[in-house]
Design a protein around this nucleic acid. Structure first.
Length: 412
RNA sequence: GUGGACGUAGCUCAAUGGUAGAGCCCCGGCUUGUGAUGCCGGUGGUUGGGGGUUCGAGUCCCCUCGUCCACCCCA
């Protein structure tokens, strides 16, 4: 029996240079825009107690009930790889004693883990860029968070995205709505698809965004949360929209947006594309006013969102490959030490430099060409004696002798 | 978890059940101080893995692993 080929775990992929370059563009846009909104980066653990997600995301959600990588460690603790970022952020905020530190505006970038069947835009280890704002009481904060999400994606330059918002109500208006909806759905359960029939008891609001056409046809006059909000929620939702209007941010109200995690209330939103197959949601989030209290802290309104880094990266154009500034070609044993020192000097002068490793001129020039460098500094006995390098412009083929101290100045 | 498509050289792909190939890449040579074009040559595969049918399997059957797509769900 031959050894099994060594490879990464299903749905868990490597970030190789080309891919990482794309990720970095996404990250840079995030850092720039979030920084302009005075958000600070935080870094939370990847490992968390299972209990954290049971109590926040919800025990009956798919994420917790069947997608978590959970295990018991050698000490008997129940821990898991985090499936999302908000719960850990709240935990950290509480644990760090920041409940009276005023408004906290956080963002983070890091891997999340869900054991799902991989497909386009869906991995078992994927990266999220998350944002959380604690002590964010009103619609002003919602509008700003939405605006920041919009600014982030604009900065990235991803075209044809749509922002959709909804209100999920609160503890005083959602239960009543839910009953109303269940009654409505049960009345026509025999005309809904199998999964929707299950959803009536498990998660009735999910039925509203079922993809099956026959279900949608049946649900034309289904009651919607936005029409059943209590006064406070209704006012909140209206003010969020006023804020977006004032900022001229394009959006549409989609009364059928549902969030999969239990902790959301009031404002929920998604930014979607039609370019990623079935996984069109590129950024999503909402308000979670009850979560902090749920996890043992003081009642604290908060709002946040998460963006899928890989999903965003897929929407980006290819980078134009830019090679290093310069390659050092060293000819002959006698100049090896000198050439190493010259490469070092060029780097200290601010250039990115590859050393071609000696050997035949042909081999080294081939390497320089392949690296895509703009210039080659040729160093042989003559150059060493004269304190110069033969500087070759790879695009034009021209070369000239330049004093080593002046090389960096000749590469503009 | 369910359903479908697909796994052949580093990459992209060929090969009526009958000797596994091409292009690109890579390495070397065509001036031992000059690349990207050209010419010549070369390396590279237990056809994802395992079993079965057959005189003979890349090709047919079963299992398994993986990738992709969709459902479910979600970023």
């Amino acid at each position: 029996m031959s050894a099994k080929k060594l490879q990464s775990i299903r749905g868990i992929h490597d970030g190789l240079p080309g891919e990482v370059a794309r990720w970095q563009r996404v990250e840079q846009a995030a850092r720039k825009v979030f920084g302009s909104y005075a958000f600070s980066e935080v870094r939370m653990p990847v490992l968390e107690p299972v209990e954290l997600f049971v109590r926040s995301v919800g025990e009956d959600t798919d994420i917790v009930s069947k997608e978590m990588y959970a295990f018991t460690d050698q000490g008997g603790d129940h821990i898991c790889l985090r499936p999302e970022g908000t719960a850990g952020a709240v935990r950290a905020w509480l644990q760090g004693g920041l409940t009276r530190a005023g408004a906290q505006r956080w963002y983070y970038i890091g891997p999340m883990f869900r054991r799902e069947r991989p497909q386009k835009g869906r991995l078992r280890q994927f990266q999220q860029i998350g944002v959380e704002m604690f002590s964010a009481p009103g619609p002003i904060e919602d509008a700003e968070i939405l605006a920041m999400a919009h600014a982030f994606l604009s900065e990235l330059g991803v075209p044809e995205l749509k922002m959709e918002i909804n209100s999920l109500g609160c503890n005083s208006c959602r239960p009543g709505y839910r009953d109303k909806l269940v009654t409505y759905l049960q009345a026509r359960a025999d005309r809904l698809c199998e999964t929707c029939v299950e959803r009536i008891t498990r998660n009735p609001m999910r039925v509203l965004d079922c993809k099956v056409a026959s279900c949608q046809a049946e649900l034309g006059d289904a009651p919607e949360m936005v029409a059943n909000l209590c006064d406070a929620c209704d006012r909140h939702f209206t003010d969020v929209q006023k804020g977006l209007d004032a900022l001229a941010i394009p959006y549409s109200v989609n009364p059928r947006i549902v969030r999969g995690l239990d902790y959301y209330n009031r404002t929920a939103f998604e930014i979607v594309t039609d370019k990623l197959g079935a996984q069109g949601t590129v950024l999503a989030g909402g308000r979670y006013d009850g979560l902090v209290e749920e996890l043992g802290g003081p009642a604290t309104p908060a709002i946040g969102f998460a963006a899928g880094l890989e999903r965003l990266a897929m929407l980006l154009d290819d980078d134009e490959a830019t090679g290093p500034d310069m390659a050092v070609v060293a000819l002959g044993e006698a100049v090896q030490g000198y050439a190493l020192a010259q490469a070092d000097l060029l780097r200290k002068a601010g250039l990115s430099v590859v050393h071609c490793g000696g050997g035949s001129a042909k081999r080294q020039f081939k390497m320089a060409d392949r690296e895509g460098v703009r210039f080659v500094a040729v160093i042989g006995d003559d150059e060493m004696q004269a304190g110069t390098v033969m500087l070759k412009n790879m695009a034009t083929g021209e070369q000239q002798s330049v004093a080593t101290a002046a090389v960096a100045g000749c590469t503009g």
